[in-house]
Simulated scan of single mutants.
Amino acid sequence: MSEMTRPAMARLPKFFRGVDPAVATAFACIVLLLVFGSFYSTSFLSPEYLLQQLKVASFLGVIATGMMIVILLGQIDLSVPWSVAVGGMMACAAAAFGPMGVALAIPFGILCGALIGVVNGIGVAYLRIPSMIITLATNAVAQGLMVVYTGGFSPQDSATAAMREIATGELIPSVPNAVIIWAVIGAGAVFLLTRTTFGRSVYAIGNRERAAYLSGVDTRRIVLIAFAISGALSAFGGVLLAGYASKAAQSMGDTYLLPSIAAVVLGGTSILGGRGSYLGTIAGVILITLLQSILSVMQMPEAGRQVIYGVVIVGMLLLYGRSPASR
């Protein structure tokens, strides 16, 4: 920062001086998208439409929460697509086993995703396999297992009433349950990252793993837990999506890999690890959701959307990936 800009920054309120530029940029882009979208549809700024978009954002927000924790380590989780699908499909499958299966459907689906995360964590932390390789491999294995389970056909099991309620119901009038769930998970993530030894260790490993290890951090255990959390949250996202659609689908997680990464890096989390805040991830999730909505209105094909997400990730890496860690 130059000598000329320091006095100007000092005159700003303390709140604004502490805001990450990437987070501020993300929120500014949200405002621009809202204004831009209002030109395509007069209902774009209506409370009903915005609440619906926030509900849709909740599914991505749950998945992106786990992705953020992994990226803060300087790692990546490419098993998201089939962790999502496994969570939804296994939760629906459990419901076919009577009342006990119905009661355990949601935790069983989450557990299956956590197991995928544990495999990823063991590969990265203990076997020292690059996260890009091991998570891509477990994604392929999960895909193969689900194809074998379904015989190559669409799953026939339906979501339970509880799954539909948490995804589409409203415990508080006019506030979707999915939004409340995202808020609870987000609050838990903020507490975990800012108020616990685990969170401090995640940032330390992301900045410099060897230094964290020499300072007494059990780096392998932290990495294992982080990937398990990512897998569990991806699977929970799949449970919510299955409840939203009343059934699971094999391709239900395919469209969430790049958006979840893009949402995290758009919010200023360094893809090289060690720096980022959950407020930025919230902004990134909302920004990606609004962008998806506008692209849908413009009838942008899915291939074009994936290109845009890729460009966003590369652009944010060039802008923030080489900046020094702030933690």
Rank of each mutant, 00 (worst) to 15 (best):
A212V: 11
A189Y: 11
V217D: 00
V217C: 01
V179K: 13
T168H: 14
A187G: 11
M146F: 13
G206A: 08
G152L: 14
N207G: 15
F153A: 15
A189P: 11
L171R: 06
V184L: 01
A189V: 10
N207I: 03
S154Y: 13
V179D: 08
G169D: 12
I222R: 06
P173Q: 06
V148L: 10
Y213D: 14
G186F: 04
A161C: 02
V148I: 10
V202A: 01
S154R: 13
R210F: 09
D218C: 01
A159C: 08
V190Q: 05
N207S: 12
L214D: 06
R208I: 05
R220I: 08
P155K: 12
S174F: 14
A183S: 11
A212H: 12
I172S: 08
T194I: 00
A212S: 09
I181L: 13
A204T: 09
P176C: 04
P176D: 09
S174N: 09
V148W: 02
G188D: 01
A159D: 08
A159P: 05
I166W: 00
G188E: 02
S215K: 03
T196A: 03
S201Y: 02
F191Y: 11
R195Q: 15
M146E: 07
D157I: 04
Y149V: 07
G186A: 07
G216D: 12
A187F: 10
